[in-house]
């Protein structure tokens, strides 16, 4: 059970502010989720380059020579940027798949949070404000992002259990609610070769969308079919390389508020999350309908 925030910028001049706006939204949702916090941020593309966000509980040791070791092992240039317990590795897009495997071989304790052209995912246990400070989330810029504060229901309070979940390149998902058929679905998706790293119900939701898109569905279609295939209660906010989507289950009892202006589209579990946004007093504010897919693209 959780608090969700999301922000999709239409006005490019706000891009340097994305991190600070999202952080403010995230911190207001602390009561809904004091156990952990996470954020997915979509930055600027560097042509031909992919980035992997990795995390380690022993960051200093694990990250010190990671980029160099990876570069040597893959025989391609790799640069690294350390941010607290996280690091972002950049390398040629052609090597991103190989890099995933090689990181597991070189540093088995490292967790891969995300990979893609523009996505970076940061998440940690602890109060959202502390997490945001440790990772300097407010200093980040980007085109769109989502954030999540978690009150764990049935899976552990760990970094792996924190949202957002990413099960495909540049994809992420955050969730408020609880799914009731995730165990059976996890077994089925695992057989289909989709990677699922935790026992968390939300990760299965993310993996489901990844699987549908791998089978050729557009994100909107994948969200549409999730309404039939996922059982339980959910409000999802998802991110893709250039898009941002929202869907609620047909019963729709987990809260959701949206706001749109000329400058942005914003999502919050409560209106409180939106109060600091510029022009919120005159924004169009509404509650997303049940079983209805909302989607914005750059």
């Amino acid at each position: 059970m959780c608090g969700i925030v999301g922000l999709f910028l239409k006005d490019a001049s706000l891009q340097p502010e994305l991190g600070s706006m999202l952080t403010q939204m995230l911190v207001t949702m602390t009561d809904r989720g004091p156990d952990s916090a996470g954020i997915a941020i979509y930055g600027t593309e560097v042509p031909g380059q992919a980035r992997l966000t990795v995390q380690s509980d022993n960051a200093q040791h694990d990250f010190e020579t990671l980029a160099a070791d990876l570069s040597r092992a893959l025989d391609t240039p790799v640069t690294g940027r350390v941010n607290g317990s996280h690091a972002v590795l950049s390398l040629s897009r052609d090597y991103s798949g190989a890099a995933r495997d090689m990181i597991r071989a070189l540093r088995p304790d490292i967790r891969i949070m995300s990979d893609g052209d523009v996505i970076e995912i940061y998440k940690e246990t602890g109060l959202p404000e502390d997490v945001a400070t440790r990772l300097s989330l407010a200093q980040m810029g980007g085109t769109h992002g989502v954030g999540h504060t978690r009150m764990a229901t049935e899976s552990a309070v760990t970094t792996e259990g924190a949202h957002p979940f990413s099960t495909g390149a540049d994809q992420c998902l955050v969730h408020n609610g609880s799914l009731s058929n995730h165990n059976a679905l996890r077994r089925r998706l695992t057989r289909e070769g989709i990677r699922i790293g935790s026992m968390n119900d939300t990760e299965v939701g993310a993996a489901y969308l990844t699987w549908r898109m791998r089978e050729g569905a557009m994100l909107g279609e994948a969200l549409e079919s999730s309404l039939a295939d996922l059982d339980g209660f959910f409000t999802f906010v998802v991110g893709t390389k250039d898009g941002f989507g929202v869907v609620r289950d047909p019963i729709a009892c987990k809260p959701a508020v949206m706001a749109e202006t000329e400058q942005y589209v914003a999502f919050g579990s409560e209106y409180r999350a939106l109060v600091s946004l510029p022009g919120i007093d005159t924004a169009r504010v509404w509650e997303p309908e049940p079983a209805t897919v909302y989607f914005w693209n750059h």
Partner: peptide, 11 residues
């Protein structure tokens, strides 16, 4: 008594 909401109301 009476409660008046001038905007929208949620669930």
């Amino acid at each position: 008594g009476r409660v008046i909401v001038e905007g929208d109301a949620s669930q």
